[in-house]
Amino acid sequence: MRPRTFFAFVGPSLVLMILFIAIPLVSVFLQSFWQTQTVFERVEIENCTPGFPAPNCTTQTVTRPLLDESGRTVTETIYVGLDAYRAVVQPEAVAAAFAAGEDFWSRLSNIDFWKALRFTLTFTLITLPLVVGLGLAIALAVNAALRSLRGPIIFVSLLPFIVTPVIGALSIRWLFIGDGILTNALEAMTGTQIFMFAQGWTIEILMLTYRVWHVAPFAFVVFYAGLQTVNQDTLESAVIDGASRFERLRYVVIPHLMPLIVFVSLIHLMDAYRVFEEVIGFSSQAHRISLQFLTYDFLMPDDSGNRSISRASASSMLTMIGIVILLVPLLMRTWRDYKPRG
């Protein structure tokens, strides 16, 4: 392809990438080192609020932003270096936890960032094999099913993938919360009282299960497409050589699907590390939070309109670094596969 044609094709996508990914990323990167603060003054003022029977007037000292002549708040931006990162990661508290010895883990998980990292990593690494395994299993099952049944089976297996993640999580939550029908069913079966939302580990299981249920269809579709291109001659010769069903899977099918498995793993790692919908959907924040939720929590204004932009930026940079570290092994593999062989 001539370079001109190449750029004509790639150009629009490059421009959009720069506009919507690269520039925001640079801005977030910068904001994690700078802090914009409102300049406050402390003044004594009298406020009146409704009281019974007469209005309630009190004089109090309040902190309020300084306004300039045109009525805008005065802000100042200062360079704070790694302060925002320090405020998120809290290295001193980690060192103190190390020094404390035995209850290291409980002390570490008392710090939001480490608590979120722990959950995010468990979530990502446990769902990964389950999604790949379940996707492959469905694909093999569908591939072995009668041709006339395949259409309906594919349709049904794809359904979870179509559901909007937050909506799906909310519906699962309503099935289990309080006296939800599934909790009731479980209680009837086991004969014990069950409270899925009363402790962290049960919520965590729900979240993991939900994600696997939701993403497995994606893996299934990709693997099913891959199965259609397995070389039938190789399979037949394997049969003639006396290879069992498992051996055919192990030595013919899986090697053939390997690039697809790497692809699905890459996508899943990226998605799962940014776990967020489950925290909102299952309102798990009292027990389990994720890194993405931490960023969101910093960014949401409270009632008084305060937002922690610097810490939100720092935490999202850390999330990105985390994803890159997780992806490195898989990316290196892909790189090796596509490198021109000498």
């Binding site: 309040v62 902190t63 309020r64 939001d112 009292a286 929590d297 409270d302 009632d303 008084s304 305060n306």
Partner: peptide
């Protein structure tokens, strides 16, 4: 009366995230 202020907004969030 709920003592709304800049500080109270920050404190409300801090309490909500930690006492559970």
């Amino acid at each position: 009366a709920y003592p709304s202020s800049v500080e109270m907004g920050l404190l409300h969030t801090a309490i909500g995230n930690n006492i559970a």
